[in-house]
């Protein structure tokens, strides 16, 4: 499978990465190179094989359903590029 320019632009949009036409052209070549490389997997017969979900056969631990952390609003926003009174500020979303 290979991707065309329109697909590259659609994937960039899904990835939330702005690309110029020139960059999309370049990426198309690179992505097709990588997709061509991974194409080798089609040679492998995987019928009856379960997909891997965990490399370790250990079941996930559960912890008590209790609050063990929190009350750190100032810490949470400390690294925000734009914050006010412990809120993240973003461009207007609703008109």
């Amino acid at each position: 499978m290979s991707v065309d320019l329109a697909t590259v632009k659609r994937v960039a949009r899904l990835s939330r990465i702005a690309v110029t036409d020139e960059e999309a052209e370049r990426m198309m070549g690179e992505l097709n190179g990588i997709l061509g490389f991974v194409e080798q997997l089609s040679e492998v017969d995987v019928s009856g094989v379960e997909p891997m979900t965990s490399v370790t056969p250990i079941t996930m631990r559960q912890r008590e359903d209790a609050v063990t952390d929190g009350d750190k609003a100032a810490d949470v926003v400390a690294n925000a590029p734009n914050a006010d009174q412990n809120f993240f500020l973003v461009p207007k979303v609703v008109e």
Binding site: V44, V46, V49, E50, P51, M52, T53, V55
Partner: peptide
């Protein structure tokens, strides 16, 4: 497919 191949590698 890749996750199935991963099972085979393991």
């Amino acid at each position: 497919k890749a996750q199935k191949v991963r099972t085979l590698i393991k």
